[in-house]
């Protein structure tokens, strides 16, 4: 019983990271229709930078903040390259973000080397209901949930948030009312970059990061995001948490190192089920 609670909380912590990466993809996709393959790179970039800044003696908080900020900037730059040219197809933009993800490898390897990096997170362990878990997992959850609440408040309660939704719903009408759709796309990329960066700085103390850690993050993030059809950040949160818990439970109860495969199979099953359903809807409509 106490094992279960421990696994659950650890899983929620890991899943919160996936949810942040996935919701970043959702925020970008719903406005620009681009699936950003550089999303995992934002997390790695922020994590590496934070690690380097901490090593120079910058205090916690500031270092993480700088990491997230730089990831947001990287997001905007990705947006400029991917959708900056008017008329770039989402498919072409996807390939461009793939290129930018690989470019991030070159930058990260050059600046920080190819060895895994980590840093200390919230120290100590907490005993909850008989389960001992690393305190840092609780910190990850405690940061992620308010961030999602803020994200929801931003989309539902502010005009710029509504304008982003408007661009997602009807880009033509958005232009008619004078919303600069391209600029909103860049804002979405910046927001996506910050969310990815936050995932990176939060997870690194419990999962060390190498330059190619982005693959695991993006696969899990996409799996979380695809549950909500890549348009609903709230579903991405639920999906990410579920994925994290499922993976931790399976690993904890003797599933060994099959976590990533589970995410992959869930993702494949969800996508095929969605495609079959959409296909049958289309046939009924005909």
């Amino acid at each position: 019983m106490s094992d279960l609670l421990g696994y659950l909380l650890t899983g929620l912590g890991i899943g919160a990271g996936f949810a942040l990466v996935g919701s970043g993809m959702v925020v970008i996709h719903r406005v620009t229709r681009v699936v950003n393959l550089a999303q995992g790179a934002f997390a790695v970039l922020a994590a590496m930078l934070t690690s380097a800044l901490l090593a120079t003696g910058l205090p916690h908080g500031l270092a993480e903040g700088a990491g997230v900020l730089v990831a947001a900037g990287a997001g905007v730059l990705t947006g400029i390259v991917a959708i900056g040219r008017p008329g770039t197809e989402p498919g072409a933009a996807l390939i461009i973000t793939l290129g930018l993800g690989v470019l991030a490898y070159a930058v990260e390897v050059t600046v920080w080397g190819d060895q895994p990096r980590s840093y200390a997170g919230l120290p100590g362990a907490v005993t909850l209901g008989g389960a001992r878990i690393q305190a840092h997992y609780l910190l990850v959850i405690a940061v992620t949930l308010p961030v999602f609440a803020a994200l929801m408040a931003f989309f539902r309660g502010t005009d710029p948030g509504k304008a982003l939704t408007a661009c997602a719903e009807n880009p033509y009408a958005a232009r008619v009312v004078g919303i600069d759709v391209r600029r909103m796309g860049l804002l979405a990329f910046g927001l996506g970059g910050a969310l990815g960066g936050l995932a990176g700085v939060l997870l690194t103390p419990v999962q060390q990061v190498t330059f190619d850690s982005d693959v695991t993050l993006i696969v899990n993030g996409f799996a979380a995001a695809v549950l909500g059809g890549l348009t609903r950040p709230g579903v991405a949160l639920a999906g990410g948490l579920l994925l994290g818990v499922a993976q931790t439970l399976i690993a904890g109860y003797g599933g060994g190192a099959h976590q990533l495969e589970i995410a992959l199979l869930v993702m494949l099953a969800v996508m095929v089920a969605q495609a079959v359903r959409a296909g049958s809807v289309r046939e009924v409509a005909r």
Binding site: K162, T165, A166, E169, N170, Y172, A173, A174, V176
Partner: peptide, 8 residues
């Protein structure tokens, strides 16, 4: 065609 933001 009105061009609503249909979900808003």
């Amino acid at each position: 065609g009105r061009e609503m933001f249909a979900g808003l």
